[in-house]
């Protein structure tokens, strides 16, 4: 059982999607996250364990490598693709409630900013760690965030920005959210953002990499 979980984690970490996928080259012709996850489910492995001991472990490993600059964005995207393909086999268990999501994470790039690569990366990593992600897209204003928060009570919120000048909008949106739904935990990230800025605008968490956001969310729901 543990061996199969280890193989699933390995496939996610190295972006081995399925048997047909020729990448990575040293895993060509081998089963990928897709087939191995299906095999685990078919053999009656607990879906929650498949998620936690297999898929999530693989995503965490690639997240740490990304933080340490050992891999770059495309490799994280490969892992996310392997993860999302495998997650399809777990979808019925999420829908039936047999496997519970850790929580809901609402994310968007703040008003005035159309950049979405960083936001997508965080979205995939958070999804890969077992949260449901509600992606509001780019150029999202405070009211749109508040509506989503009201639709998903108790959700966590992620704000992304690439431009120095959209930091101003981030500050405004945090204030609006905190005024409307005071207990909302807000994570911020993006090129111009820093720990100091997080303090200044009264957000709850800042991370310079996606894995930091995942770690914070995991700690928050533990």
């Amino acid at each position: 059982m543990e061996e199969l979980y280890g193989k699933i984690a390995h496939c996610v970490e190295f972006g081995k999607i399925n048997l047909a996928s020729p990448y990575p080259p040293d895993m060509k012709g081998q089963e990928g996250a897709d087939e191995l996850t299906k095999k685990a489910i078919d053999e009656g492995f607990p879906p929650e364990e498949v998620l936690k001991k297999g898929l999530v472990v693989g995503m965490e490993k690639i997240g740490v490598k990304f933080r340490e600059n050992k891999v770059f964005v495309p490799q994280v995207l490969m892992s996310a693709k392997a993860m999302s393909t495998a997650m399809e086999h777990l979808r019925p268990f999420f829908e039936s409630g047999a496997v519970k999501r850790k929580g809901i994470f609402v994310i968007g790039t703040v008003a005035g900013d159309l950049h979405d690569i960083g936001k997508n990366l965080v979205s995939m990593m958070v999804k890969g760690s077992g949260f449901e992600v509600v992606d509001l897209g780019t150029d999202v204003n405070g009211q749109q965030f508040i509506e989503a928060i009201k639709q998903h009570p108790g959700c966590y919120v992620g704000l992304s920005a690439l431009l120095t000048t959209t930091m101003v909008n981030m500050e405004k949106i945090v204030a609006e959210i905190k005024a409307a739904v005071p207990d909302t935990k807000i994570l911020i990230g993006g090129a111009p953002v820093s720990e100091e800025f997080k303090e200044k605008i009264h957000a709850d968490f800042y991370s310079r990499d996606p894995q930091g956001a995942v770690d914070f969310l995991n700690r928050s729901v533990a």
Binding site: G112, L163, T164, T165, T166, V168
Partner: peptide, 10 residues
């Protein structure tokens, strides 16, 4: 460029 070094994108 606007958007960098504090120059507002507006």
């Amino acid at each position: 460029s606007p958007g960098y070094c504090g120059w507002s994108v507006g």
